[in-house]
Design a protein around this nucleic acid. Structure first.
Lengths: 203, 203
DNA sequence: GTTTGCGTACGGTCCCGTACCGTACATAAG
DNA sequence: CTTATGTACGGTACGGGACCGTACGCAAAC
């Protein structure tokens, strides 16, 4: 989706098509560094080697610029099927790069602003959070299909355990998300929950 | 701890001692409503029926005011011992008021600002997060003492599961923390993890 | 009367969004 | 090829508004 403006390309200088993507990348960087409220359009222009006029020619406001930049984030690819839940989870989420893939700083920079920016909140959840949750969900769905996980398990609950633990560790507790921590969460929390032990009946 | 300024109580008009607490409460409210970056001293003064001069006479800056207000939050009381982990957890965390006790809006309003305010981050974690984590930890420590939980369990990990799930549900997913959700997390996640099933050996 | 309280008004700064200038680039006409 | 035209672009300046922290004037308590 191009930013907002349609222009019949008649005569005159053509827009550099890579420019949009460059500006969006700068917005994503600055969101992670200073957060939504402290992000300024001047800073975006400076780091992107652009001028504010160029930015406002393509996006109508700071809010729309941020919404577009968040909406264009790359989703997590669907992890390969290794044949078992354990291996699927370890290969997908127990390596060091997963902290980058989770974009914890970006999430942190946006969280405070979400309640006051409903459009941003919707884009953030529809095009950033949900696709990432789906990457984890397919692992559990494959496990259900294999018979590794009983079909009555609540996959929504199961899916959110790992990202919730990682986000809490980094953002709330302020402690580093090491590979050791990732493995501990998988081995001692997620995998036991995914196993066959009978869930308690409520009440 | 009085705010920051020590005044030799000689003669003259005395400060209203309740004034400090009232201003702190307003700060806590506004942090939950608009977050740290958008909190203004003018708004604090207006809602507290005070003037900015009064506030700056007691705290040297907005940053110190917020740090003090967060540091003076009431901790969660230690939950009563009901005799079993299950009952302890249900009574302490499966009732509706727990969302208020967790102050999710306040946490949300602070998260983005923590990386740029180390002093605030330290006070937030030392005097707000850690005491609340302790309220949950004592439940599990009692369970270990009773023999309900094997002593080799990682209590730090176990303690953070519930707050992590609740915070993720509300702040990241943007979905309501209902009593049904609280019970589901306890029954299907926390209690199974606290039980006697053998944790997997890593590797 | 002195000391401390309180409120209003103000300076300075920051930032959003716009207007304008001169230049670089692309097409169309001669 | 040369010239004219139209658009994109970087840079700067500006208006308007919000906000932090302070200066001043006055009232209340001792």
């Amino acid at each position: 989706m191009p930013p907002a403006v349609e222009s019949p390309p008649s005569r005159g200088r053509l827009r550099d098509p890579g420019r949009d993507e460059g500006i969006r990348r700068v917005v994503q960087e600055l969101l992670a560094e200073v957060g939504y409220d402290r992000l300024t359009v001047d800073a975006v222009a400076a780091r992107a080697h652009a001028s504010k006029a160029t930015i406002y020619r393509r996006w109508p406001s700071k809010a729309e610029l941020v919404i577009d930049a968040v909406g264009c984030m790359e989703p997590l690819p669907v992890p390969p099927d290794t044949g078992s839940v354990e291996e699927d989870l370890r290969q997908a989420f127990a390596h060091k790069g997963v902290t980058k893939e989770f974009h914890l700083d970006l999430v942190s920079g946006l969280l405070t602003a979400l309640p006051r920016n409903p459009d941003l909140a919707q884009v953030f959840r529809d095009r950033f959070i949900d696709p990432r949750a789906r990457a984890m969900r397919v692992i559990f769905e494959r496990a259900v299909a294999r018979g590794e996980i009983p079909p009555e398990r609540d996959l929504d609950l199961l899916t959110s355990v790992f990202p919730a633990m990682v986000a809490h560790r980094s953002l709330v507790a302020g402690r580093p998300v090491t590979v050791a921590y990732l493995r501990a969460v998988l081995e001692q929390v997620v995998l036991p929950l995914a196993g066959r032990q009978s869930p308690r009946s409520p009440g």
